[in-house]
């Protein structure tokens, strides 16, 4: 189980770095779908191994919402507006890749210095690294889709962490969290669409979201 956890964790880290590298929104969204798929499968396997029904339900919900529904919604949205290319970056790509990498190391150092003594889970720095990377993705791109994806990466890593480190978290809490997040994504979808509409009135700023 630990190997699987480490494998998925580093795959997530690599996928975020890959997202930082990409210029095209479509690829970023597909990458996000893959990362959700990995998390969902991990939860599923763990639920199966531990005979934990709530984890399996959680995995199914994750797969349904994150892997299927949200990327599908975003992609269909993209085709309509034909806005595949990510327009504006606050930080240049090379720098953001390196910063993303440094965050992984920062997470490791923080984890080793503070948390490790109290949790004593070997690979516990991985979810923290992914959370930091998600925050950085939100900061480094000026695009509503990418910001939302960055936010969802943070949530993914939380599920990842909660699922692996504390699998016995009360189900009512986890379900509440998941429903909340689902609602949040829907609402942000609405606001995102509104933003797009209000901006697209100005022809010059057609493919430019303002941060």
């Amino acid at each position: 189980m630990k190997e699987l956890f480490v494998l998925v964790g580093f795959a997530e880290i690599v996928l975020v770095i890959f997202m930082q590298w990409q210029y095209y929104l479509k690829k970023i969204i597909v990458t996000f779908a893959i990362s959700s798929l990995l998390i969902g499968l991990l939860l599923f396997v763990q639920g199966g191994l531990q005979n934990n029904t709530s984890l399996i339900v959680l995995a199914a919900l994750t797969l349904l919402v994150r892997f299927f529904f949200i990327p599908y919604y975003m992609l269909s949205h993209l085709e309509k507006v034909y806005k595949e290319k990510n327009p504006k970056q606050v930080v240049s790509t090379g720098t953001s890749i390196v910063v993303s990498l440094l965050l992984v190391i920062l997470a490791y150092v923080i984890y080793r210095l503070t948390l490790y003594r109290y949790i004593s889970v070997e690979a516990g720095s991985i979810p923290i690294a992914i959370i930091l990377q998600g925050i950085f993705l939100v900061i480094s791109r000026n695009n509503a889709f990418v910001q939302l994806i960055g936010y969802m990466i943070m949530e993914n890593s939380l599920f990842f962490m909660a699922g692996y480190m504390f699998p016995d978290l009360p189900f009512i809490v986890e379900a509440g969290i998941l429903l909340d997040l689902l609602g949040l994504v829907m609402i942000s979808g609405v606001v995102m669409k509104l933003r797009e509409d209000s901006v697209s009135e100005v022809v010059d700023e057609f493919d430019e979201f303002r941060g």
Binding site: K2, V6, F10, I13, V14, I17, F18, W21, T93, G94, I97, V98, S100, L101, V104, I105, Y108, E122, A123, S125, I126
Partner: peptide, 25 residues
């Protein structure tokens, strides 16, 4: 100029190898 981004990704992989080594104990 995008070559440098490529190199940055390669660098991250090399660096992650060391991080993996330590992060897995």
């Amino acid at each position: 100029f995008k070559n440098f981004e490529y190199v940055a990704v390669a660098f991250s992989f090399a660096f992650l190898a060391i991080v993996v080594f330590y992060a897995t104990g």
